[in-house]
Design a protein around this nucleic acid. Sequence first.
DNA 1: TATATATTTAGACATTTGTCTAAATATCTA
DNA 2: TAGATATTTAGACAAATGTCTAAATATATA
Lengths: 85, 85
Amino acid sequence: MKSLFKALNDQTRRDILEMLKEIDMTAGDIADKFDMTKPSISHHLSILKQANLVIDIRKGQFIYYSLNTTVMDDIAKWFIQFNSK
Amino acid sequence: MKSLFKALNDQTRRDILEMLKEIDMTAGDIADKFDMTKPSISHHLSILKQANLVIDIRKGQFIYYSLNTTVMDDIAKWFIQFNSK
DNA sequence: TATATATTTAGACATTTGTCTAAATATCTA
DNA sequence: TAGATATTTAGACAAATGTCTAAATATATA
């Protein structure tokens, strides 16, 4: 849960998640959507990966990133428990 | 949403929320539960308040803190939308 | 009003975080 | 194998964050 909240505490990373909600993307394509260098985006992707929020698969030169929706469900549950009492 | 994720990105603050889920507490009582000074806890409470996650009400010398469950619902929805697509 | 209790505010400081540039690694193709 | 493209890793640095001590503010009560 710790790495999860950390990963979510950044607008760029939240934007990446919103983008991946729509479609899987390569690291380069993701970077092109932001006014930021590729190494910076790579760093953000690494934090999202650490939190298990995204999955990466290499296809040749490219690395595709996609959303891990299972974890999203888990967090949603964490919040819902606050209202169950 | 920004201040919300920021507020949640700290174990002490998440612990405070879990405690307030059970029962309303004064700032002093909350501080007593942690191995941390009162000013530090006061700072955490201020961040939770800024994020609208808690509500504070003064009763005489004491200030009582309680959970704002409405916001919890809102965040839960934010996560659930990721799986709706 | 003076003193005690509850809490916050102010300011300092070490740690963490986000960003950058330069260099390294991985893969593709001529 | 050499050169081009895609991506990550390493290291530096400014800004943000969490914690502390000391002081200020608010309320209660003798």
